[in-house]
Amino acid sequence: MSRYVVKFYKEGVLRYISHLDLLRLFKRSFKREEIRLQYSQGFNPHPKMSFAQPLSLGYSSSGEYLEFETTQPYPVEEIKEKMNLILPEGIGILSCSELPDSGKTLAAMTDAADYEISIPCAEERGVDINQLVEAYLTQIEIIVLKHQRKSGKDVELDIKPMIHDLKGFVDRNSIMLKCKISAGSTANLSPELLLSSFCSHSLIPYERTEVTIKRTEIYFTG
């Protein structure tokens, strides 16, 4: 039994393919390329394969991770080449490496993630983006309202400790935010919250469907 991790990108129409659909696509790709996955035992065997972090529908990414176990060892280059041969346009393997068994899944080790958020601005506003970012980050607390799915209530949350890094750029008609924020099971910040909080603090109007979000890296502990 061998354990591997592939880093892959997801873009174009594949942005509209959900987490579960993507899992099925990988499962079928492995099957078509005859890379034999290890299956779980029990009544309903399923292949041992999981993503480090789910990616929201509509996001693109250049840094996704999938771990999986196979019944026999394969050269990592072979996995990468075979998969790239078969994966549809919009998704591709950037690298593949063996994953030593640490007793923890990538999901459990996920600590933070990088995002690029691009917000189109209709008019030339001549914004000083650096100043806006600085003003935003110098707040003692950054309070947002987070919707609790369980209780159905909105609760106040300080997201400041979850923002590891935030930089702003202006590129012609759009503002680009590059950030590193907490991700994973201990602390997780959705880039959606950062987007709405930053824009409301900086008085930047935006239409959510015009904003594009891309994840560029996931960081792991241990």
Binding site: G12, V13, L14, Y16, I17, S18, D21, L57, G58, P88, E89, G90
Partner: peptide, 8 residues
């Protein structure tokens, strides 16, 4: 949205 993208 996957209903409308094609490319399968």
């Amino acid at each position: 949205p996957g209903r409308y993208t094609g490319g399968e």
